[in-house]
Write a protein that binds this DNA or RNA. Sequence first.
DNA 1: CTGCATAGTGCATTATATGGCTCTTTTTGG
DNA 2: CCAAAAAGAGCCATATAATGCACTATGCAG
Lengths: 72, 72
Amino acid sequence: MHYAELIKTIKARREVLQVTQETVAELSGVGLRTLKQFESGKGNPTLLTLQKIADVLGMEVSLTIKNIAPNK
Amino acid sequence: MHYAELIKTIKARREVLQVTQETVAELSGVGLRTLKQFESGKGNPTLLTLQKIADVLGMEVSLTIKNIAPNK
DNA sequence: CTGCATAGTGCATTATATGGCTCTTTTTGG
DNA sequence: CCAAAAAGAGCCATATAATGCACTATGCAG
């Protein structure tokens, strides 16, 4: 997942769950400003920050081998 | 994936590919010191740094919904 | 034991992420 | 159209990630 995709995924997930940035910020312990920056594509969050956010949204950060479509 | 797992995954992947930290650092553009800190569990890398490292190792950072075992 | 390659660490500097406050813009309902 | 809610953005202080350099520790071959 590229940067933009990660953001889209987070935003989409948050919208599906019908929660505001403010709520996610409070529940995750991440500053509202930080979350806003991230979702608006301005930031470069630390892994910890991303994990906190993902966690509240019922998601997790993972590393996968990217050989989904090796030869096409 | 928890923090420690991410690290283990990166280290394991690097070892499978038989590349040194130095090589990964050079190829990814991430400082060797930064990579060493991350692999030794000392850091909290930014998403960008993690992506650069994962990329060189043929991996990618992704967000997944963590409902692997909903009710048990 | 010796030497070499790879990995881990201390220290200092620079760049930047975090986060509170306030204000503006956009979205959502009535 | 209006007002409230939610999202985005500027300013700014503080914490910390990124990085280079030098040194130490570890593992392995001879």
